[in-house]
Design a protein around this nucleic acid. Sequence first.
RNA 1: GCUCGGAUGGUGGAAUCGGUAGACACGCAAGACUUAAAAUCUUGUGACCAUUGCGGUUGUGCGGGUUCAAGUCCCGCUCCGAGUACCA
Length: 917
Amino acid sequence: MDYNFEEIEKRWKQYWIDHQTYKVKEDSSKPKYYVLDMFPYPSGAGLHVGHPLGYIASDIVARYKRLQGFNVLHPMGFDAFGLPAEQYAIQTGQHPAITTYKNIARYREQLDKIGFSYDWSREVITCDPNYYKWTQWAFIKMFHHYYDNELQRAEPIENLVKHFEERGTEGIHAEGTKELHFTADEWKTKSEREKQEILMNYRIAYLGDTMVNWCPQLGTVLANDEVSEGFSIRGGYPVEQKKMRQWCLRVSAYAQRLLDGLEKIDWSDSLKETQRNWIGRSEGAVVHFNTQTGVSFDVFTTRPDTIFGVTFMVLAPESELVEQLVTDEHRETVDAYLEKTKRKTERERIADKTVSGVFSGSYAIHPFTGELLPIWISDYVLAGYGTGAIMAVPAHDSRDYAFAKQFDLPIIPLIEGCDVSEESFDAKEGIMMNSDFLNGLPVQEAISAAIDEIEQRGIGYRKVNYRLRDAIFSRQRYWGEPFPIYYKDGMPYTLDESKLPLELPEVDKFLPTETGEPPLARAKNWKTEEGYPLEVSTMPGFAGSSAYYLRYMDPHNNEALVSKEADDYWKNVDLYIGGTEHATGHLIYSRFWNKFLFDLGVSCVEEPFQKLINQGMIQGRSNFVYRIINSNTFVSFNLKDQYDTMPIHVDINIVHNDVLDIDAFRNWNPEYKDAEFILEDGKYICGWAVEKMSKSMFNVINPDDIVKKYGADTLRLYEMFLGPIEQSKPWDTNGIDGVYRFLRKFWNLFFTDDNFLVTDDEPSKEELKSLHKLIKKVTFDIENFSFNTAVSAFMICVNELISLKCNKRSILTDLTICLSPFAPHIAEELWHRLGNETTIFDVQWPTYNEEYLKENTFSYAISFNGKTRFTLDLPADATREEIGKTVLEHPNSKKWVEDKTPRKIIIVPGKIVNIVI
RNA sequence: GCUCGGAUGGUGGAAUCGGUAGACACGCAAGACUUAAAAUCUUGUGACCAUUGCGGUUGUGCGGGUUCAAGUCCCGCUCCGAGUACCA
């Protein structure tokens, strides 16, 4: 009987819906397991074959864990706010919600075809007001909290107000944008507006004047992770630096906890490393410098040991100190320089490697030697890192060195034996010299000795700095969550929680207003009941994706983001699968967001994603035909070098196993209607290359087509078989026949002469061994996310059972259960044909018995004089003496035994055994 | 530049603790069935040599080392990929 996947898959999909097979509830009698996919943004192009890779892997784990007796939460949803829908809306005038929901429906249809075990009753869609209510709610909470560095957690802002009332800023440990100083009396005399401005300095969600990445083409600001090399990641438009008043999240306050948390979670080393680099912790010191004019400032350095090599100071052009330190004499050149750097885009600053800068006219006083150090201004110093000012040590910093060479500033070497005539010596090694009290110390000791001395003299202090910046949280866009914020006397206040969700208003156009305000400014009555204006920018894409995993635990709760009971039961995500492109975006924000909710007591586990797997990208495999230049003749791949040819992309749908369907090619494009071919062996062989999957290269594979041709089970198995889940690899349809053949062979195990026929006979030793080898292997492989080798194991097992002509019920039952996570439809079909009433996903995963796996013989490598001479199969339970005797009697041993050289016998596998004869 | 990965047949990949390298699959070749094709099945398939002896040599990017034994461990290179980049 034929394996009719179409009929089988249709039947069981319906069965699973009818029986609500995948619906889960909290169940304290079972251990929980939470498997999550990074939810997709529903783009207009639909799914290609690369998207389901991670979903299939997580689905296998979800089904497997369920068979293992876990209560499995395996939800899915959509990250629905985003730029493409809005861009489309601007072009067509169609509301982004319409496009978005249409795309969601298409995604859903495609996903359903593949047979995932999602509990769709828990679906979340980020643009649904019932969902974004909780995004807004979290924002309000962040607004009303500050970060306490002593307690190492978020605290209500009222505590800070109370502290100000009692003691002013004395003894506070609040993380702030700037360091502020005032007394309790001063606080009391401040106006409401002044107080609000001060509190803004400490709120976790705050309005700040910051340099932002402004993208004029998109008309919005972007976060650091949304920009790459001066261009926007979405759209690839140039991005420039601009100072704007924006909503920000004080992610930097959590830098140390984000770093420490990495130790506790099971992520790949490379991903953790990427996050560590992004957080960028560096230890050093803040050193205080005075100037001749009485103005003083701090610098941050990781090399306080090089303090005696400082020969000049440099300020960032954007630094506020520039205004205070520039002398009248130099004002003109400084202003010209500032103007010039301001006009440069980020892109130009990266491209322009030339050293530039101007002298301010002022001098700083060296805190140890009292020497005068000229203060320069240069764009190689960044305003946003450290204090925006540096002490320059040209001998031991390559950037300072280049600057010193350019402007002919002195260079003082500080490390014995180093040569700074050609380049700086940046390594943190060697013995100090020219450095007063540090002379003779190795660098590492000199660093701490220098800091000790600096602290002793009261001219600075030990300090840890982070590269991680606060997240800019405003977008000048329509299609995002509105801020639950209104303005009174120009200061922002949060809406009452009872007013949530604040729904996105209707607008006539999705474009900014004529005065450059965001689209929400077009909305009628965009104000509170009292008439106060509402915030017109919206939240960025990562807002909605930062806590969605919590919402799946309790998606219909109108009273809380997640109930205490649901959160206590599901805790955090046990396995999270998604792409590595979220390493510095979503995976930082989400961890930050969860830590904040943890501080509030909403989330009971500090790290949201315990184990994380990054699935690789599936690239396209393009095919080429080779056209002879200036002709309509095409040469087959292996003959192309004999002609002057040019490769042309050809639609992979008309190529099978790299052989071109010539008729289809002629019909493909009118231009090739009369094409001529030079064939090899009567075939036209195409060339191929691995490229990005894209329409323009005619190499996009739609999973729907594969499902139609081979069935969902084959697609699932094949995607897993392609290679290790974490590796990027090309989609190569050529191999799919092998997997399809395997499923048919598996199916045929249950049939004899077209009849379903399994026997209740006792299985043989070989059959049991084959099965238990499989159970052991597949269990191990799923636990280790090695799905490709698991699929191979099934193929081996089925081949063995075919050669044993096995149709024993007990063997085939366990085999079917093992296969069910990978190929659920065929497994469910055969499960029911075996006479079972309930779904296969309610049974127990089989356990293997080591007894059946014992080998009768071991292979031993016999080595004489340190070289392996031959191998021998011997009984597994043989003693040393027996092995020795057998080896010596073996004909191959003769010539080695007769001479008098020392001899050894080595056992493979395992350990060396020396046998005395 | 820095950080982290990786390199195994014609192809994708296996080898889980240092123990018979190349599992499994694709492709290819030969054969069976067939009027024929497709499908299916059988056999072979790293390279080189020998194939009237069913064996030998060599082989996991390159060069060394440790070990009875190295794709795996150590040292030094080459190339490829990813992340990041005036981060003081």
